Amino acid sequence: MLNAQLTQDYAIQSDANAQNFVIKRRRIVDPTQAPGYKPVEGAEPPAKREVWDDVAYYPVNTEGLRAALDYVRFKAAVNADTTSIAEFMAALRTETFAIEAALDSQIPYWPDVTITKGGAA
C-alpha cells in the first residue's frame, strides 16, 4: 500500500483495494475550541492532536497520479499568503520543487516502462 508524505501538510496513499490514490491533508485539532468544551477546574486542558483527512481521490493510473500531485501543489500554493500573481507563481514553484524533492528522496530514478506486443520492454 502506498503511503508517502509529499509536503508537511499533504500525503498520498492508495486505498485498501489499490483502486484510488487518496490525497490526505493534515490539520491540527484543538479540543478546547469545540463549541461544547467546558474546562474542568484543576485539570490540564486536552492536548491538540494531528488528524489526516481524505480530501481527494484519483484513479490509479498515470493521469490520476499527475492529477493528484497537481492537486497538492496547487492547493498548497493557493493557501499561501500571496498578494500578486508573481507571488502565487513563486509559491507554486516552491511547492512543485518540494514535491519533486520528496519523490526523488523516495525513488532514485523513475523507470521508463513500455509495453510491447511480446511483453514489457
Score class of each variant (00 low, 15 high):
1 M>K: 13
2 L>T: 08
3 N>Q: 08
4 A>Q: 13
4 A>K: 10
6 L>M: 14
8 Q>S: 08
10 Y>E: 00
10 Y>H: 00
10 Y>Q: 00
11 A>I: 04
11 A>L: 09
11 A>Q: 06
14 S>H: 04
15 D>R: 03
15 D>G: 04
16 A>K: 07
17 N>R: 09
17 N>M: 11
17 N>I: 01
19 Q>R: 11
19 Q>E: 14
20 N>E: 11
20 N>A: 09
21 F>C: 07
22 V>H: 01
23 I>N: 04
24 K>V: 10
25 R>Y: 00
26 R>G: 00
27 R>C: 13
27 R>A: 13
27 R>V: 09
29 V>L: 06
29 V>M: 06
30 D>H: 15
30 D>E: 15
31 P>E: 07
31 P>K: 02
32 T>G: 08
33 Q>S: 10
35 P>E: 12
35 P>R: 11
36 G>F: 11
36 G>D: 15
37 Y>K: 02
38 K>P: 04
39 P>L: 06
40 V>Y: 05
42 G>S: 01
42 G>H: 00
43 A>P: 08
43 A>W: 00
45 P>S: 13
46 P>D: 12
46 P>K: 06
46 P>I: 05
46 P>M: 08
47 A>E: 15
52 W>D: 01
52 W>S: 08
53 D>F: 07
53 D>V: 12
55 V>G: 03
55 V>E: 03
55 V>C: 01
57 Y>V: 10
58 Y>W: 12
59 P>D: 14
59 P>E: 04
59 P>W: 09
59 P>C: 01
60 V>K: 09
60 V>D: 03
61 N>K: 02
63 E>V: 05
63 E>T: 01
63 E>N: 08
64 G>V: 04
64 G>F: 03
66 R>L: 13
66 R>G: 09
66 R>W: 06
69 L>W: 04
70 D>N: 15
71 Y>V: 01
74 F>E: 06
74 F>K: 08
76 A>P: 00
77 A>L: 07
78 V>H: 11
79 N>S: 15
79 N>I: 04
79 N>C: 11
80 A>K: 12
80 A>W: 02
81 D>E: 14
81 D>W: 03
82 T>M: 07
83 T>F: 09
83 T>Q: 05
84 S>C: 11
84 S>T: 15
85 I>R: 06
85 I>W: 05
86 A>N: 13
87 E>S: 09
87 E>C: 07
87 E>G: 12
88 F>C: 01
88 F>Q: 07
88 F>E: 01
89 M>T: 13
89 M>L: 14
90 A>Q: 13
90 A>M: 05
90 A>H: 01
90 A>L: 09
92 L>C: 03
92 L>W: 15
94 T>N: 14
94 T>G: 00
95 E>T: 04
96 T>A: 05
96 T>F: 06
97 F>E: 12
97 F>C: 02
97 F>N: 05
99 I>T: 02
100 E>N: 14
100 E>Q: 15
101 A>G: 03
101 A>L: 07
102 A>M: 10
102 A>G: 11
102 A>L: 06
103 L>R: 06
104 D>N: 14
105 S>K: 13
106 Q>L: 15
106 Q>H: 13
108 P>K: 07
108 P>G: 08
109 Y>A: 14
109 Y>C: 04
110 W>N: 12
111 P>Y: 04
112 D>E: 06
113 V>H: 09
113 V>F: 14
114 T>G: 13
114 T>I: 03
114 T>N: 08
114 T>F: 08
116 T>C: 05
119 G>W: 14
119 G>H: 12
120 A>P: 00
120 A>L: 14
121 A>E: 12
